[in-house]
Design a binder for these strands. Structure first.
Length: 940
DNA sequence: ACCGCCGGGTGCC
DNA sequence: ACCGCCGGGTGCC
């Protein structure tokens, strides 16, 4: 029985709930959340033991606890009566009482120096009026156990050892009457293998019979495929239905969470949104656009204007408008569009319009006008002034009419959808809006990007869609961010898995957004481990897991320790909020989407005699150097050198001219500082070549590379996290050298080197170039319309390839990291176009653009050189093997026989095996395996 | 009357 | 709180 029933006897109902639901309680829970913001990752914690404690002062607080409920223990150093105070709260963050003074002092001793994390569960006495017992468990790093015991003993407390031999017995859970499944003995330990499988399958086949199909609003110009209609139906339902979040059930008058045993009188906020985790290429973007247009308030379509006659936008043009007046009207459009926003003629607005996509007859039909961040700044005064003149604007209404929606939403309902994307897919969104929204529909899409972006909240919230990047969002964050002052109708995170690090500024900025509905789009919602999920749940505000502590206690820790029930809960959780289909998913026995066959073949390349000689020379030299390092045991300290050696060999396999000018080796007399500069310079060269190196922290391709003083390369977020958790004691994960944040050397992701040396000098061919050209010429003979992607990690190799392509009269484009956003869009359009003179070849740098590019015009992919990370290659292939591909796709990997490349392929394969076996491990043992890899690469 | 005992007031940190 | 603790009133049985 809940203590609340008992309490009705002596407290009036208003008293009882006053605190819980008024604004004070909100600020209190915010304060607690803020205090818990630094909640450490519970990974690696062990149970030190239990202690029975007392919660006192119950009668002063309205927060109540059910039998078996987990409680939070929050230090309250500012308490005027006792600086050691420890406050006890329930799941919603409402205060229940305090820990008794003497015990609080002991707890403060260990909590304040982060020696242990203390968790509480109340098993009995929940209807006591003055105090109740609480079972405390102390968790922390094994090495701190003694210190904790000692500190507690000094205050006269002794921990009882964790009961039983199985550390995964039910003690982590509340043992309330409602949680039958945690009765002793029912939790079964999973093997690592089972866990790995379950985890892999976590996001598989989350399609079940998710509702029916929903037709998109008329404004969507592209007919949806059946699986997209299903997704739309599911998304609409998630936005409109007030379903209980997972693990909540209604018990009489109360809502009860069976995992935490918490109950509340009012319904827990439902998660309006979720994770759309469809595979790449299934049309997440189109489905999202359809959602925006189809599901406004009350299940009605977004009220958009349509052009009744073709002159409407001409009329708008005819009205001379000053830039600020134009933007002003946009800003005062309120939630029902009354103002013609066809601003395509104003000088300050850049329309992203592809002329080739317009119909020839009607140059004005394209009304998806997209404002680039280029307007003159709009002053608030202007807005007010314009608002006062609002009446005159309604005249324009005559040239337009409301679309299908007859319900006019109230003025104060949020209207705009905010879409946050990585920069690389920004243009894709713009394209897709243009492509999928019917040409006569006026959808206000504003690109919030660039230094001249319009920061007026009134303007932004009057848009239908605002698109921005994660970087812009986090740059604005904390600096009067207009995006954070708006109540959005929905926020959509594209490639949402990139916010998986909760310490990142970006993630914090995203969490602070105010929205009615929240969506995450991601093809790969989990990258490494269960941990990645927390940010996503926190963003979706899935109670109570948006608070890290509850996530750790209820899901993360049980799951990582192989607890079956914990895994089941995780599965339930994910299932409730996720829709995922893969390319191979089937609906009623039929494939979800038709994707043409893909064949991958390896073409072995023989080096010419002179190439082989040069290669062997380099290999012998490199092998000797590395043998020396191995003998000295300094292999990790000389990491930079080794990368350079490997890179040189890989370059030899492609083309001799790829090798940089012989480096000026410093003599033994060089100072340590010079040596370090030299090492860093070497790494710069490796990174500048476009080589896809691996970060030893996350074991993935390096994002935002930085170089340490000890000459190792990591992702900036990875290494800064290492530094921030270890503080002054931080050591380089590879060589254990000291590292400091301010000593990290930035490296621009895709810096271009001077390339004149390649083009000016005498051009020569190479075996690999020959192999490629042979293929290209043969294909052109067979079918002149075939388009190819030619992919290399070395941008300079792409440059070398330009020459023979030109000589053989191939029309090609090039896409690499040095190409700016605008040109990028042009290049992709040119390549994707089906006109006669459109290029048939794209030279693509492996890392250019990341995921999301749509290059379905190509049906052949040539991977010129193997990457360390097989996933990077897969991603690249998927750019053309995706929805919209009509031809069979052929992938050719060129591998030089008897070379480092063959070994790399071998390592790729092993890596895949290893990944499949090592679930959840952060690769502690894999760091050393890097040495083995290197030895293997040089056949040592 | 420097104690014990009684009974009222009182109560988290 | 049907406790403990504090401090004032009280004082043989």
């Amino acid at each position: 029985m809940s203590s609340r029933w008992w309490r009705f006897g002596w407290a009036s109902e208003e008293d009882l709930f006053a605190d819980r639901y008024d604004t004070n309680s909100e600020t209190l829970s915010q304060a607690i959340r803020a205090a818990a913001a630094e909640e450490p990752d519970a990974e690696g914690s062990v149970l030190f033991g239990h202690l029975r404690g007392t919660v006192v002062g119950l009668r002063y607080y309205t927060g109540v606890v059910n039998r078996g409920e987990m409680v939070g223990l929050v230090r309250e150093p500012q308490n005027p009566y006792d600086p050691n105070a420890v406050m006890v709260t329930n799941i919603y963050g409402n205060q229940v009482g305090h820990i008794k003074r003497e015990l609080a002092a002991a707890m403060a001793d260990v909590m304040d120096v982060n020696l242990a994390k203390v968790e509480g569960v109340v098993h009995s006495g929940t209807n006591n009026a003055y105090n109740m017992p609480v079972m405390l468990s102390f968790w922390g790093k094994e090495e701190n156990k003694f210190a904790v015991m000692e500190k507690l003993a000094r205050r006269g407390f002794k921990l009882n050892p964790g009961e039983g031999t199985n550390p995964n017995s039910n003690q982590y859970y509340s043992k309330g009457s409602g949680s039958q499944m945690y009765k002793k003995g029912l939790t079964v330990q999973l093997t690592a293998e089972e866990l790995k499988n379950a985890f892999d399958n976590l996001f598989e086949n989350l399609m079940e019979s998710k509702d029916g199909e929903q037709e998109a609003a008329e404004a969507v110009g592209t007919p949806l495929l059946p699986h997209q209609k299903q997704a739309l139906s599911w998304m609409c339902a998630r936005e409109n239905k007030c379903t209980l979040p997972p693990f909540w059930e209604k018990k009489g008058e109360l809502y009860y969470n069976r995992l935490t045993c918490f109950s509340a009188k009012e319904m827990p906020e439902s998660v309006c949104g979720g994770i759309l985790a469809d595979d790449m290429g299934l049309g997440k973007t189109l489905t999202t656009i359809a959602l925006i247009l189809t599901n406004f308030h009350g299940g009605n379509p977004l009220p958009v204007e349509t052009c009744e006659d073709k002159s409407s936008s001409i009329k708008a043009k005819a009205k001379p408008q000053t830039p600020s007046a134009t933007a002003t009207e946009a800003a005062t459009g309120s939630s029902v569009p009354q103002v013609d926003l066809t601003l395509d003629d104003s000088t300050d607005v850049v329309e992203i319009v592809d002329d080739s996509n317009r119909t020839n007859t009607d140059n004005n039909s394209l009304i998806v006008c997209i404002f680039f961040g280029g307007e003159a700044p709009v002053l608030e005064e202007d807005l007010d002034f314009a608002a006062a003149l609002g009446g005159s604007m309604s005249k324009k209404k005559k040239t337009t009419k409301k679309a299908t929606c007859s319900v006019e939403p109230a003025e104060d309902l949020p209207r705009a959808t905010l879409i946050i994307t990585p920069l690389s897919v920004l243009s894709n969104w713009m394209d897709q809006f243009e492509q999928h929204v019917r040409a006569d529909v006026k959808l206000r899409v504003y690109l919030y990007y660039g230094s001249e972006r319009n920061r007026s909240q009134r303007f932004l919230s009057s848009q239908d869609v605002v698109i921005t990047t994660y970087n812009v969002l986090s740059a604005d964050f904390g600096n009067k961010s207009p995006l954070h002052g708006i109540k959005w109708l929905r926020v959509v995170l594209d490639e949402g898995h990139i916010i998986r690090n909760p310490n990142a500024q970006m993630s914090k900025a995203v969490l602070q957004l105010n929205a009615q509905r929240r969506w995450i789009l991601s093809g790969t919602p989990i990258q490494n481990s269960v941990k990645d999920l927390w940010m996503l749940l926190a963003f979706l505000r899935l109670k109570p897991f948006d608070v890290r502590e509850w996530w750790n206690r209820v899901i993360q820790r049980p799951v990582t320790q192989g607890d079956r029930a914990g895994l089941q809960n995780l599965q339930t959780l994910v299932k409730c909020i996720t829709l995922r289909r893969t390319k191979s998913s089937k609906v009623n026995g039929r494939p979800l989407v038709f994707l043409p066959e893909k064949t991958v073949c390896v073409e072995q390349v023989e080096l010419s005699r002179s190439e082989r000689e040069e290669y062997e020379l380099a290999r012998t030299e490199g092998r000797n150097t590395i043998r020396r390092y191995v003998a000295e045991g300094t292999i990790l300290r000389n990491y930079a050198d080794i990368l350079v050696i490997l890179m040189k060999l890989r370059q030899h396999c492609c083309h001799p001219d790829l090798l940089a000018k012989p480096s000026t080796d410093l003599g033994a007399s060089a100072t340590p500082a010079e040596m370090r500069e030299h090492l860093i310079e070497k790494l710069r060269v490796v990174l500048a070549s476009g080589s896809d190196e691996e970060c030893s922290v996350c074991l993935e391709s390096i994002r935002l590379p930085v170089i340490t003083h000890c000459a190792h390369v990591y992702c900036r977020p990875c290494i800064t996290q290492v530094i921030s958790t270890e503080q002054e004691r931080a050591r380089c994960p590879l060589c254990r050298g000291e590292i400091k944040t301010n000593e990290l050397v930035e490296f621009p992701p895709e810096e271009m080197e001077e390339e004149k040396s390649i083009n000016s000098g005498k051009w020569r061919t190479s075996s690999k170039v020959q192999a490629l050209m042979g293929n290209l010429l043969r294909l052109r003979c067979e079918d002149g319309s075939i388009k190819c992607l030619v992919v290399s990690q070395f941008t300079r190799f792409l440059t070398i390839l330009e020459r023979p392509l030109r000589e053989h009269g191939f029309s090609f484009v090039r896409l690499d990291g040095s190409i700016n956003q605008k040109r990028r869009t042009e290049v992709i359009r040119e390549f994707q176009s089906s006109t006669e003179d459109s290029p048939t070849i794209m030279l693509l740098s492996l890392k250019a653009g990341g995921v999301g590019l749509n290059l379905t015009a190509a049906s052949h992919v040539f991977l010129m050189d193997p990457a360390w990370n097989p996933a990077t290659e897969e991603q690249c292939i998927d750019r053309c093997h995706r929805l919209g591909q009509t031809r069979k796709v052929t992938v050719t990997k060129f591998i030089v026989k008897h070379s480092v490349e063959e070994r790399m392929v071998e390592i790729q394969r092993k890596k895949q095996d290893l990944m499949e076996k090592a679930f959840g491990s952060t690769g502690g043992d894999r760091k050393t395996s890097r040495i083995e890899e290197i030895k293997e690469l040089l056949e040592l």
